[in-house]
Amino acid sequence: MMPTREEWAVVLFTLRVAALGTAVILPLGVTAAALLTRSRGAARSLLETALSLPLVLPPTAVGLLLLDAFARRSALGSWLAALGIQVAFDWKGVVIATAVMSFPLLVRSALVAFEEVDPRLVGLARTLGCGPGEAFFRVTLPLAWRGVLAGTVLAFARALGEFGATVMLAGNIPGRTQTLALAIFHDTQTGRDDRARVLAGITALLAFAALWTAEALGRRRQRRRAA
């Protein structure tokens, strides 16, 4: 059974919000990982734990916290509303929910990649005239980019399948906030199991492609290190 136009629209919407969410967290996640790489001790482990919370909390709990943060009666929500921006029950809410849920995956992958870079090389860059920032962009990042990219793809894959936080913050509004994950749930609830299966198949294909890419990047990284 071929997907209909309506179903393609859901697929496109999902890809778009996942890509947007990933784009939002990429600079933030790389910065967070770079700062964590340079820090040690209790502060670091506290931060690392806090950043990883979305991995283990029930997504609905994260969604609820986000909903409270962005609700019209909250400080942030009313400030955004004054600017004419509505996050809750809007596509922007989907972006934020998926971004928050996939953020830890990106940070953790980037952190591992940065820590694999020989600190002696960074030190040498500094003796050759680089400040810490320049050494990061000229040595650390070029040597770690595969790992960062693998983490980005992983975060994107996670964003594709996000359900709990999204449904709490953005609701399940067909044509407005409904992603693939939400549509599958909606279809099974409304007796359209066949359509749900088609969407599930598409989701599986997308996720497979993304994970395959991330794995391939990881494998090449290992080969390079072995060389």
Binding site: R120, G123, L124, R126, L128, G129, G131
Partner: peptide
């Protein structure tokens, strides 16, 4: 800062940027 010392360093394994 190391960058301002102008001290050249050659480590044991050369430490070239790969």
């Amino acid at each position: 800062a190391p960058a301002r010392r102008r001290v050249g360093y050659v480590p044991q394994e050369a430490g070239l940027f790969p």
